[in-house]
Simulated scan of single mutants.
Amino acid sequence: MRRNATLGKALKQLREIANVTQEDFGLVSSRTYISTVERGLKSPTLGKIEQLADVLGVHPLTLLTAAYMERLTPKEVDRTTALLRDQLLALVSEK
């Protein structure tokens, strides 16, 4: 599966969980744009991911992480989130 298609699937899943329609993104994107992202025809920029996540009421990393979740078992989710936490804390300590 193409990576942008996986991001689109994650966007649709989070949108449905949040009970948000494609039209609810109207202040940041058109319904047509959201539809093309969900179908894997377009890939949003990081700035757009931030806007989309804001409408969904989630952190942008939640949307990005959800794009990779399909490939992970529950045990791998725990291991991956622990690794991500460690890497982020290492970045903060280097400042």
Rank of each mutant, 00 (worst) to 15 (best):
R2K: 13
R3L: 14
N4C: 06
N4M: 11
A5Y: 06
A5T: 10
A5P: 01
T6Q: 14
T6E: 15
T6W: 09
G8L: 08
K9C: 09
K9F: 14
L11A: 05
L11Y: 02
K12E: 10
L14I: 08
L14M: 10
E16W: 08
E16N: 09
I17G: 01
A18E: 14
T21Y: 07
T21K: 11
Q22V: 01
Q22D: 00
F25D: 04
F25P: 00
G26C: 07
L27S: 15
V28I: 15
S29D: 05
S29R: 14
S29L: 13
R31A: 14
R31P: 01
T32S: 15
T32Q: 15
Y33I: 13
I34S: 05
S35K: 07
T36V: 06
V37S: 02
V37E: 05
E38F: 07
R39W: 04
R39S: 15
L41Q: 14
K42F: 08
S43N: 11
P44T: 05
P44A: 08
T45Q: 06
T45M: 05
T45K: 11
T45G: 11
L46Y: 12
G47F: 11
I49P: 00
A53C: 06
D54S: 14
V55N: 01
V55A: 03
V55G: 00
L56T: 02
G57M: 10
G57A: 12
G57K: 08
L61C: 06
T62N: 00
L63Y: 02
L64N: 02
T65V: 08
A67H: 01
A67N: 00
Y68S: 09
Y68Q: 09
M69G: 01
E70A: 11
R71G: 09
L72T: 00
T73L: 07
T73S: 15
P74I: 13
E76V: 00
E76D: 11
D78A: 10
D78V: 13
R79I: 07
R79Y: 11
T80H: 08
T80G: 00
T81Y: 08
T81C: 06
L83Q: 08
L84M: 09
L84E: 03
D86H: 11
D86K: 12
Q87R: 12
L88E: 03
L88V: 14
L89T: 02
L89G: 02
A90V: 02
L91M: 13
S93D: 15
S93W: 03
S93T: 11
E94T: 06
K95I: 06
K95D: 13
K95Q: 13
K95A: 10
